[in-house]
Amino acid sequence: METILACLVGLLFAAALYLMLSGVLVKFVFGLALIGNGINLLILTAGRLQHRAPPLIPAENRILSEPVANALPQALILTAIVIGFAMVTFLLILLYRTYAYAGTLDADERPFLEEWREDDSCSEPFVQAQQEISPLSSPRETILAGDGRT
């Protein structure tokens, strides 16, 4: 069974990396979510899957009587899930803010590329982008773009 799960982990990673490489920032977030899942599965599999009983000590006993699933990777994964959730949420909001500011979420577009070139004046291309986007965008997005300007 480990073989199948290992293949699944590989697939998760490959898909996640492909999405992250796409340059579309929304897809990047999807990729991040996927890679988090992949890592969690990887940790679980690396802790072996022989025993399926949950790591709980029965109420009548003081110690385990039967072998149970490995508790250590589970604790690691529990932590990783919550952290991953926090990161994905933060990234989403960063995207939201970036979009209001730059007017695009395509990482290969000008506002993202030129930010580095002009060392101290990185806000300038953003201002241009906002002016360019207003005729195309929906009313809601215009409000957001306005947020970024104020």
């Binding site: 073989t3 290992a6 982990v9 590989g10 490959a14 898909a15 990887l42 690396a46």
Partner: peptide, 20 residues
Amino acid sequence: DGLLALAAGLLLTSLLLGVV
């Protein structure tokens, strides 16, 4: 991109198999 991502995924699979 797809090939590179696949290669990385394969690497992970084989590493995990090695670990197990």
